[in-house]
């Protein structure tokens, strides 16, 4: 169970990343965030976001067009 969830389903670039960044701000180091997105571009974008910010993607699954990511705050 993640510490917080961002529902970015239906949102397009760049809002899934922006909403995630806003939510991560409210977390402490080591806490986790679950993100739900339907934007297929978000798969590559979250990888880039993770690489640049250092917040690790610890889980990534797809279920019927919904991409689910779990990130751990650096």
């Amino acid at each position: 169970m993640a510490n917080a969830t961002v529902d970015a389903r239906g949102l397009n670039c760049p809002m899934p990343i922006v909403k995630t960044a806003q939510a991560v701000k409210g977390l402490a180091s080591g806490q986790t965030l679950e993100v739900l997105a339907t934007d297929p571009g978000s798969v590559k974008d979250f990888a880039a976001w993770s690489k640049t910010t250092g917040n690790e993607i610890i889980e990534q699954t797809t279920d019927g067009g919904v991409f689910r990511f779990v990130m751990r705050k650096k």
Partner: peptide, 12 residues
Amino acid sequence: MTVAEAPVLATE
């Protein structure tokens, strides 16, 4: 966006 608050997990 819905941000569900959950209890803080103890981190290793």
